[in-house]
Design a binder for these strands. Structure first.
Length: 551
RNA sequence: GCGCCCGUAGCUCAGUCCGGAUAGAGCGCUGGCCUGCGGAGCCAGAGGUCCUGGGUUCAAGUCCCAGCGGGCGCGCCA
């Protein structure tokens, strides 16, 4: 392309330009227009002061000959459309078959170590639907980064600091339930955690330890309760997340950051660097010097460090471990935390332009039941837990559904519908397509079809039906899509893509009989089915959804 | 009041980063297709002020400005 423009400029057909502006070469919106299209002539119209159609003409006249290009057309207002020979489609099919599980994988990350941290809930209750979204997102992002060549670690940060308000409150709730179970008439804290699971935890403690804690001083008793509950809850979180298909490499405790002295050292470091000042009996950090909207307290009047302080310590700990970059997946209710974290990291010269900490914010999930929005509050005990969700619709549907929209979009789940109509979830449509691919191979084997041993060397030029070409095209797009989804931290692109692949496969399947009389054609079609199967398998795997061979 | 996200088909949402041709999908709706490798499927159709108003541009769902509507933040909570 550049050659053609250069040539045209040399010959004086086009005015000379120093630099070419950015232009695009991409598949056009309508497939009839061709395989690829470029807007270069229109982009050049302004600097050259010429009509885009004339420029396009000049470029096309000077295009170097190329075996891959079958036809070049100019369309108003100035697009240049290329129709390629089908070689590139055939290459994609071959690549899918040959690379199999590695199809769509890249080496962009060059084995560099990165980290994705997600879910990271308070150990004060079951994981709920919002955590499920964070989980599905974080895990899929980790899969994607791994697919483009990074060495990815998954991390869970346990917000378990005993002096925190939430944890104190939780301890009081447990204490009240414990005493109530033993027959004491004690009031339940007004702001306490009202969920039934608190009663169950208290019951477990009663069963294991009887009335051993009744005589303890309340403060000690509450801490003991929380420690007992913490172990149970974290273990439970771990097992539910595994059920959801997520296995972490690291579990980091916030309390440990305190116990190991990291929080204290971090505060010292900030002081030494002159980034702090005292006001109103508290210690503040000058985050506004680094782009934050207001300064932040890092040590309270009471002497207790804030969550912000421990989070800086936590990110320093991440930094120590040598990650090329880290991804934090947070709910929208934490978005206010983003500018101050970046400010802190800039102040500590860990990053300059938000290139090290990548925060993915997902909008909260709204549940609709009986036509009404359900307000979720752990303390009020209105919880739809990840367990419940998995019981109702299963891992695959849950993950697919949670990854169907961009993280930016609010996600509505009608619970009645999710339960009742789970069979209509698109995940089944996609999985069915994959199972069908497998089924065709099973059938071929059963019949000992002569095309079966041939398909790896099939003559793909026999694939001439429109449905075959469309299917090949979508398969050919897969590697670029993986890259894009990984770089944008946007797994939903894959969800949308998988539906399209399934769609085109079903079209093809209806129109083209795979196992037929013509052995060469059957072999070519088997190759296409295999490539489809690989593409669907890899897409679903990246999403964390299983790709069943039979349903 | 300030900040972030969202506003596109009856519903739920892609597409906006990086402007481009006739704005897409799923569900729902209407009408067709079961003697074929899996009907958990396929085909056809109806359905749109891309929230509003300005601006930039040859070209705006996309960029800029001002509004409106919804969500979430703005704590010495996490």
């Amino acid at each position: 392309m550049k050659e053609a423009i250069g040539e045209a400029m040399e010959r004086g057909v086009l005015p000379k330009q120093q630099d070419l502006p950015n232009f695009t070469i991409e598949p056009p919106p309508q497939e009839e227009f061709g395989d690829f299209a470029t807007n270069i002539a229109m982009v050049l119209a302004r600097p050259m002061g010429k009509n885009p159609m004339q420029i396009a003409n000049a470029i096309v006249q000077h295009l170097p000959p190329n075996d891959l290009v079958q036809k070049v057309e100019i369309a108003p207002p100035g697009f240049i459309n290329f129709v390629l020979t089908d070689d590139w489609l055939h290459e994609a099919v071959k690549e899918a078959i040959e690379r199999d599980e590695k199809f769509g994988h890249w080496d962009i990350g060059q084995g560099k170590k990165v980290q994705v941290e997600f879910v990271s809930a308070n150990p004060t209750g079951p994981l709920q639907i919002g955590n499920a979204r964070g989980g599905a997102l974080g895990d899929a992002i980790a899969n994607l980064l791994s697919a483009i060549g990074y060495k990815v670690e998954r991390e869970y940060y346990i917000n378990d600091v005993t002096m925190s308000t939430q944890v104190q409150n939780f301890g009081e709730s447990l204490e009240a339930r414990y005493l109530q179970l033993l027959g004491y008439d004690v009031p339940f804290p007004e702001e306490g955690y009202k969920g039934e699971y608190v009663v169950e935890l208290a019951r477990e403690i009663v069963n294991e330890y009887g009335n051993a804690f009744v005589e303890l001083p309340p403060e000690e008793r509450r801490r003991k309760f929380f420690e007992l509950a913490r172990e149970k809850i974290v273990a439970h979180h771990k097992s539910v997340l595994e059920r959801f298909g997520i296995v972490y490499d690291n579990w980091v405790s916030e309390q440990w950051l305190y116990d190991s002295g990291r929080v204290a050292r971090t505060i010292e470091l900030l002081k030494q660097k002159g980034l702090t000042y005292e006001a109103e009996e508290a210690l503040w950090m000058r985050t506004t010097d680094f782009g934050d909207l207001k300064d932040e307290v890092i040590v309270r009047r009471t002497g207790a460090p804030t969550y912000f302080a421990s989070d800086i310590a936590y990110h320093l700990y991440k930094r120590e471990r040598g990650y090329a970059f880290v991804v934090d997946v947070w709910g929208a209710d934490h978005h206010g935390h983003v500018p101050r974290m970046h400010a802190a990291l800039k102040a500590l010269e860990i990053e300059r332009d938000e290139e090290w900490l990548k925060v993915v914010i997902y909008q909260l999930v709204r549940l609709v039941k009986g036509g009404e929005t359900v307000r979720l509050s752990k303390r009020a005990g209105e919880i739809v837990s990840l367990d419940d969700l998995l019981d109702w619709i299963g891992k695959d549907a849950a993950r697919f559904f949670l990854l169907m929209r961009s993280a930016d979009a609010h996600l509505d789940i009608d619970l009645d519908l999710a339960v009742k109509q789970s069979q209509e979830n698109p995940v089944y449509y996609v999985q069915y397509a994959h199972a069908r691919c497998c089924s065709i191979f099973r059938e071929a084997e059963k019949r000992q079809h002569p095309a079966l041993p041939e398909y790896r060397n099939a003559d793909l030029r026999l694939l001439t039906d429109e449905t075959e070409r469309k299917l090949m095209k979508v398969i050919a797009r897969f590697p670029e899509l993986v890259k894009e989804a990984a770089e944008k931290f946007s797994p939903h692109l894959l969800t949308q893509f998988s539906i399209q692949v399934a769609d085109r496969f079903h079209d093809f399947y209806e129109r083209c009989r795979v196992l037929g009389e013509d052995v060469k054609l059957s072999a070519a079609r088997l190759a296409l089915v295999k490539a489809t199967q690989v593409t669907l398998h890899n897409t679903l795997t990246l999403l964390g959804v299983s790709a069943p061979e039979a349903m």
